[in-house]
Computed example of a mutant assay.
Amino acid sequence: MSSGSISIFLMRGVAVKNEGSSSSRERILAAATKIAQAHGYNGLNFRELAEDVGIRAASIYHHFASKADLGAAVAKRYWEDSAATLDALLAGSPNPARALSQYPATFRTALERGNRICLCSFMAAESDDLPQVVMKEVRSFADVNVAWLSRVLAAAGIVRSEETEERARAIFAAVAGAQLVARSRSDIALYDALIESYRVAGLIPASTF
């Protein structure tokens, strides 16, 4: 084999290794997210996670140096995905009011998937036990939601500009709370009923079509 062929072979080997490494990291994150949504940060266990993914526990440390690093990565990925979902919701809606009326559906999805709740809401309840690096990412989830709601409320002209953040925080807290109550009863219909009560009260705009 010529030196040029050897170089190409080695380069391909590195590419395959990197692809495999990236795939393993994604599978770990996906599995860890499911576990955290059901059991929170304290439910993350490297040995059990490795069994779920089908790798050795030691392999997880290749991607995440500690449980705190894993928890932070999971929370960060979660709020980044949530931010992308909200941006897509606004972009695909005919007007801001319509996007706002659909906001509760983004939390309903977790309940539809095995009676789960928002991962960052779950972790926020564990704040006393969370490493700072994890708590930082958990808070980012709330910040992203409140910022999006504030922006959409302002665009829809539903409240005065100086009141948008206060209303945004109220909507975020109410929707997250409804999700938590519904999960505790394993009753998604209860979530829908609570959201409808928010609409009747005027906290969230009625659905527009």
Rank of each mutant, 00 (worst) to 15 (best):
Q179S: 15
S207E: 15
L180D: 08
S197H: 05
V181A: 12
D192R: 02
S184N: 06
L194C: 01
Y198E: 08
L194R: 02
G177H: 14
S186T: 07
D192Q: 05
A206F: 10
R199P: 00
R183N: 15
A178Y: 11
R183H: 12
S207W: 10
Y191D: 01
A176G: 06
V175E: 14
L194Y: 02
A193R: 08
I188E: 06
A176Q: 15
A178L: 07
D187R: 04
A189F: 07
A176W: 06
A182E: 10
R199L: 01
A193D: 10
D192E: 09
V200Y: 03
S184D: 06
I195A: 07
G202Y: 14
L190W: 04
V175R: 14
Y191M: 04
A206Q: 08
S207N: 11
L194V: 12
D192G: 08
A193G: 06
S186I: 03
P205I: 01
L190Q: 07
I195M: 14
A201D: 13
V181F: 06
V181Y: 06
L180S: 14
S184M: 08
S184K: 05
D187L: 03
V175Y: 14
V175D: 14
D192V: 05
G177N: 07
A174R: 09
P205E: 07
L194M: 14
S186H: 03
R199E: 01
S197N: 10
S197K: 07
S197V: 03
S207K: 11
R199N: 00
P205T: 05
G202L: 10
V175N: 15
V200W: 01
A174P: 10
D192I: 04
A189R: 12
G177Q: 12
G202Q: 02
A189P: 00
A182Y: 13
A201V: 03
P205C: 09
S184F: 02
